[in-house]
Design a protein around this nucleic acid. Structure first.
Lengths: 156, 156
DNA sequence: TGACAATATGAATAAAATTCGCATCGAAAG
DNA sequence: CTTTCGATGCGAATTTTATTCATATTGTCA
């Protein structure tokens, strides 16, 4: 699927995605056109899904994180859809076990959080919810570990 | 802190961060130099934290997600650090309540997950853990909602 | 009104993106 | 072993973008 050079390119982009292609080419020691072609193919193959700007949530009154364990009837797809439709909801995961869904929220403060929780409770299929408020986020990344010396975890 | 034009720029970058600055300028109807200056200031002020490439986890044998509720003695900073140091650990949140930490993992499969869990259990301060395996992720975004018609949630 | 700070503009230049013809390499077929 | 073919890299040429800077505009405050 991809080789060491691709890995190198992805590492660079993972570090700083808005870096000029010419600079990537310099770092991997190839012609810019070749690097461009590789990046294009990584995008085509769906290995690269997109490029995002990382914003400071606190600057947008979204400084409070919380996780909600939603116990639902079976695993209602309608419940998932309704949860996902809420603006403050960052993530909706269907999990194994009694708590059917695990929902990650981001709000301005406790008042807003309460409002969202009251919005979740009456959703179709929702039996009960348990909320965990985040005091401090120690780590939060979406990076994929590409530094595997051997070939495991890599498609050929 | 920022105005409607900044919001517009951020929306564009949130959608597609590797877009050329000249194109952003076109979309917001300003000179490229002015847009460049605005983006620079957004970066300086820490509103823009960085730019990331979004990779397909499945392509890197990281198709399995799980959340681990870690019950810890008090809220040991050492525990948090140890958790954060594990490569498969994507997020570590210190939460209010008996489960001191909520940890998000990404692994290749159940076998790897088990290995990581056995790595977590003996960590300093860890009393017990409860694991929730993700069957399906319905929504997973880090986008900040910038489409607020009124001024609430925005610093002036 | 006048001064000042912040920000926009447009032109000029340097740098980058993009295209494309050609070369190279490796695998599979003859 | 040679040929063919596809994939990929290279480098030159061209278009587009980034970046800088002098100048203009705007809004605020004294």
């Amino acid at each position: 699927m991809f080789d060491e050079i691709d890995i190198h390119i992805l590492e660079i982009l993972q570090e700083k995605a808005r870096i000029p292609n010419a600079e990537v080419a310099r770092q991997v020691g190839m012609a810019p056109s070749a690097v461009l072609e590789r990046i294009r193919k990584l995008e085509e193959r769906g290995i690269i899904e997109g490029y995002e700007v990382r914003l400071n949530p606190a600057c947008f009154h979204q400084g409070l994180s919380a996780f909600v364990q939603v116990e639902a009837d079976g695993t209602d797809a309608q419940t998932a859809t309704a949860l996902a439709a809420i603006a403050s909801v960052q993530e909706v995961h269907q999990v194994v076990g009694p708590d059917g869904f695990l929902v990650k929220l981001r709000t301005a403060d406790h008042t807003t959080l309460s409002r969202i929780l009251q919005q979740i409770r009456p959703l179709p299929g929702v039996r009960s919810i348990r909320t965990q408020v985040v005091l401090e986020t120690v780590k939060e990344t979406r990076r994929v570990d590409l530094t595997e010396p051997n070939g495991n975890g890599r498609n050929s």
